[in-house]
């Protein structure tokens, strides 16, 4: 195979205004992949370590989220709109069949009167039931803990949606056009939150986390749960946190702080 890298002159086309904006929020890292090919990205706070191109996701990493419910404003859904924008999830105005990868859930405790609001998305379980039940192996867990649907194998049986305790998955009920190049999705297959895998693989934060930070909420922290020096690992070690339906023993990678259930 005589693979020759093709150079497309990215640096020139990269929108300077956007670049400045991105730089302002997180600092732009640039990595030279090959002469002329430059990789831009926003570094994750604290633990910048983009995987080298050509290497596989590592089982030494487990990506996770820590969501502080006390910092989540019930009137805010910036994380949701960021997800829709990033992944091109604009619906058809039919709420029952339009997909939702992340949603804000309001909970109210009838005994105490406490009300809370929190985002719920795919919980990226260590023992995902969706992966167990999938007949073709389309549902799978990547080495670094991200649970995905391989749409090349998905036959649209929707068994994973029956098995998921979090109602995290959506079935694409209609034709989709103008997908994002980095987020392919199509009619007749099942999809869910990918933790913005295209961003994570290039050392950027998931869109929801970035949006929450931008909005000054700071309720969402993304990082490697297996790296003892990462911010998320330090925080879950220091403060009590919990998983939704932790009783099911699925060990989700998404954890919540100050959740009153």
């Amino acid at each position: 195979m005589s693979g020759k890298m093709k150079h497309t002159g990215i640096a020139a086309e990269f929108n300077p205004a956007r670049r400045k904006f991105l730089g302002a929020i997180a600092g732009v890292a640039s990595v030279t992949l090959a002469p002329g090919v430059i990789l831009y990205g926003i570094t994750r706070s604290g633990d910048a370590r983009a995987r080298k191109p050509g290497t596989a996701a590592s089982p030494d990493v487990r990506w996770g989220l820590l969501i502080d419910v006390n910092h989540c404003d019930s009137g805010c859904d910036k994380c949701v709109s960021a997800c829709v924008e990033e992944n091109g999830l604009q619906g058809h105005g039919r709420p029952a069949t339009d997909p939702q990868w992340i949603r804000k859930v309001k909970i109210h405790d009838p005994d105490t009167g406490l009300s809370q609001s929190l985002p719920v998305m795919c919980q990226h379980c260590a023992e995902p039931p969706c992966v167990d039940v999938c007949p073709t192996g389309a549902s799978f867990k990547r080495a670094d803990g991200i649970v995905l649907v391989d749409r090349h194998r998905c036959i649209g049986c929707r068994y994973c949606m029956m098995a998921c305790p979090y109602k995290a998955r959506s079935f694409v009920h209609e034709e989709i056009e103008d997908q994002k190049t980095y987020a392919p999705r199509g009619k007749g297959t099942v999809e869910a939150c990918t933790l913005c895998i295209h961003r994570v693989d290039s050392d950027r934060l998931p869109a929801c986390v970035e949006a929450c930070n931008d909005a000054g909420g700071g309720a969402m922290l993304f990082g490697d749960l297996k790296d003892p020096n990462s911010e998320i690992a330090r925080r879950v070690a220091r403060y009590a946190s919990q998983q939704i339906r932790g009783d099911l023993g699925l060990d989700p990678g998404v954890r919540y702080r100050n959740l009153s259930t």
């Binding site: 949603r103 804000k104 109210h108 405790d109 259930t261």
Partner: peptide, 9 residues
Amino acid sequence: LFPGMEVSS
């Protein structure tokens, strides 16, 4: 998702 809670979304 949240046993014992009133839930909406």
